[in-house]
Design a protein around this nucleic acid. Structure first.
Lengths: 184, 184
DNA sequence: ATAATACATGTAAATGTTGACATGTTTCAA
DNA sequence: TTGAAACATGTCAACATTTACATGTATTAT
């Protein structure tokens, strides 16, 4: 399916970037729905260059540090536009290790259950706070009134991430509540 | 991390099973948070057997069809119990191809955006209905009053899946709403 | 009867992903 | 000035996962 291909193509289409910049983007903005390590990005950039979907220009930064700034080609833009309109079946539900543990709840006693769920809750609440701060920052600095814009894209995926985390937290609290009230 | 190892160990711990049974479980019950193909399961079963975490007994079904019914060992139970109590950092957010498309919303025009989001909404609504039916069935046939039971494990992960799908739908509707109201 | 479907178990090649290895430059703060 | 952090690019081995290949039995509906 080459999904990384389209993630990279989409980012470079927004503006020319280096492999390092892409890595940073995968850690920040896209972090709420996509991720890739630099060890996967550099080989993919090489491949996309060979396929003539992107090209690069070597730029010297400072005295001798070489950067490869990648730009999307017309062919790349066409493939990207073609991919974005495709209608694909729903992906299989993503894996969730915490839910795997929760599923086998019968292996824990009451205190252990409460400990595991509380720890997960704390982590998720922390993450939600980070996402909310990012949203505050976004609303302060960007204009999202135009629906056909990068800014609106940034906004909706961040909004989706916040809603997802909030729901996960609600679920954890509901579980904790039932367990706490149980007699066993 | 060997996560499949623990998924299999947990299932076999619930009751002895064949590789085929495990595959079916990954398609049904665990489908809402884990998945594995039989081509991954059979080699893993072999490995777990070599590690003495499970053992199998060959059972003849009918005239000559051989089944390998796997049972967890004491060592396997110990490892499983040990894993379930571990405190691990939050996994990176799972990948979401639809959100990747949504992020690059600037590549579509208004009609295309509405088409893509509506199609996704229809698929998610269908999936939610299936999950709700599964919940109705579960509540009808199983007793979830004991928190330390397989039934309660089944219940909470299904509940989590329903909440997640509902939130995804809410997000899609919100996005569609903003786009529909936009002038562009 | 027979054909489709479900049951049952495997392997091999390709692809996707992570973690470790490997190297060097530039900037910024103490 | 020097050391840490950020910038910058790559490879390789191991592990995870999917798709295709490969084979055969038992049950159920027509």
């Amino acid at each position: 399916m080459r999904k990384l291909k389209y993630a990279i193509l989409g980012l470079i289409n927004r503006k020319p970037m280096t492999g390092y910049d892409l890595t940073a983007e995968f850690d920040k903005a896209l972090g709420s729905f996509w991720h890739a390590k630099h060890s996967q990005i550099y080989p993919e950039l090489k491949k996309l260059t060979e396929e003539n979907l992107i090209t690069y220009e070597t730029v010297i930064h400072g005295e001798k540090l070489e950067k490869k700034v990648y730009t999307i080609t017309e062919k790349g833009k066409q493939e990207l536009k073609n991919w974005i309109l495709r209608d694909e079946p729903l992906e299989p539900t993503p894996k969730d290790v915490f839910k795997l543990r929760a599923y086998f709840i019968e292996l824990m006693n009451k205190e252990e259950i409460i400990l595991q769920f509380s720890r997960q809750l704390a982590k998720r609440q922390k993450k939600l706070e980070i996402l909310k701060s990012a949203m505050e920052e976004l609303l302060k600095t960007k204009d999202i009134s135009n629906v056909i814009s990068e800014e609106f894209g940034d906004y909706i995926v961040l909004k989706g991430a916040i809603m997802r985390e909030q729901t996960y937290i609600d679920w954890l609290k509901e579980c904790l509540d039932i367990v706490a009230k149980s007699s066993e």
